[in-house]
Computed example of a mutant assay.
Amino acid sequence: MGVIGIQLVVTMVMASIMQKIIPHYSFARWLLCNGSLRWYQHPTEEELRILAGKQQKGKSKKDRKYNGHIESKPLTIPKDIDLHLETKSVTEVDTFALHYFPEYQWLVDFTVAATVVYLVTEVYYNFMKPTQEMNISLVWCLLVLSFAIKVLFSLTTHYFKVKDGGEKSVCVTFGFFFFVKAMAVLIVTENYLEFGLETGFTNFSDSAMQFLEKQGLESQGPVSKLTFKFFLAIFCSLIGAFLTFPGLRLAQMHLDALNLTTEKITQ
């Protein structure tokens, strides 16, 4: 069983495209910098003074001295000033300051490339129907999954580095919650919850045993069913812990956007 022919050609072509073309024409960068996303420009201190009706004053006796340096009183601006923020489109220069932008760009661009490889491979299998070749699109899909988990893991480790934050407790709590939930679901027989897990595990074990027998090795199977379910529950708990806090933040941001839009419409 070898990876030869059209699949190898498609893989090499896509690898060349990712190396030569995608750094200059990135789909991930286009999603952020196509003009649809805009950011509000922060007003200057002079603009705030003019809107608040306060003029720049010189140093007075009321200024506080601290360690030999004169510090002016902090500028206070009323909340009811008529302030209109200017908007600007997000450009490539703005993305340089974004955290995890390289990881985002690589993940999105690689996902697009893997999708193209998957579609071409499926068309090839549909018409040619090869039997002695490994479907290389599965390798691309597994790489996409591994890169996504790596990014989520990096993001979660950043939460644990933050001091005096609730992100750590949220991730740990929901990690244990999803672990218990996954174990409870896996214990239930397929008479009530049919996932096809039993059939899939049996087919995988039989195929693995046949492969090991052809290699001259004796084995009772790659792993027991209980161990397989245990590691599957751990994997589900990790995915739940990785996605919980970003999901909560996204939901809160979406809710704030809806509330802000509703307030503007009612006004």
Rank of each mutant, 00 (worst) to 15 (best):
E167I: 01
L8Q: 11
I81D: 14
N135C: 02
I22Y: 07
F101V: 04
G5V: 14
T11R: 00
L85T: 13
S89G: 15
L232F: 10
F177P: 02
V112C: 07
V116G: 01
T91W: 01
I4A: 12
T131E: 14
V188Q: 04
D164C: 04
P130I: 04
M14R: 07
Q132P: 06
F177L: 09
F176A: 05
A233W: 04
Q41C: 01
V117D: 00
A97D: 05
G166P: 03
A184M: 06
L250A: 14
T244V: 07
K73P: 06
H24S: 09
E133K: 07
V223S: 05
F211D: 04
M14D: 05
D94F: 05
F245M: 15
Q215W: 10
S36W: 14
L248R: 05
Q220A: 12
G221Y: 08
L142H: 05
P43I: 03
T76G: 00
W106I: 14
P130Q: 00
A52R: 01
D63A: 14
T11M: 02
S26V: 09
E47H: 00
P78A: 15
F231M: 10
V144M: 01
F235A: 06
V116A: 06
V10P: 00
L217E: 11
H42D: 12
F160V: 07
Y124A: 01
F242P: 00
I149D: 07
I81H: 11
Q220I: 14
N203W: 03
L232M: 06
I6N: 08
K59F: 11
F127T: 11
N67A: 15
I70G: 04
E45V: 12
F195S: 00
E167H: 02
F201S: 08
H158Y: 09
L8I: 14
T11C: 08
V144A: 01
K59D: 04
H99C: 05
I17R: 01
K181Y: 09
T95D: 03
E167P: 08
S169T: 13
D63P: 10
M134V: 10
V90C: 08
N126Q: 14
M183R: 02
T76K: 13
P74I: 15
E263V: 11
Y40N: 07
F110C: 08
V93G: 09
T121Q: 06
E92I: 09
D206A: 07
A114L: 01
A208P: 00
F178N: 00
E47N: 09
S219N: 10
F101P: 05
L119Y: 09
N67Y: 13
V123W: 15
L138I: 06
W30L: 03
R38N: 12
T91M: 01
L226V: 08
P78D: 15
V223P: 04
R29M: 08
L83T: 13
Y66C: 11
L145A: 11
L248P: 00
C236I: 14
E45C: 05
L31Q: 05
K150L: 15
I149E: 04
K168E: 07
E198R: 02
K214E: 13
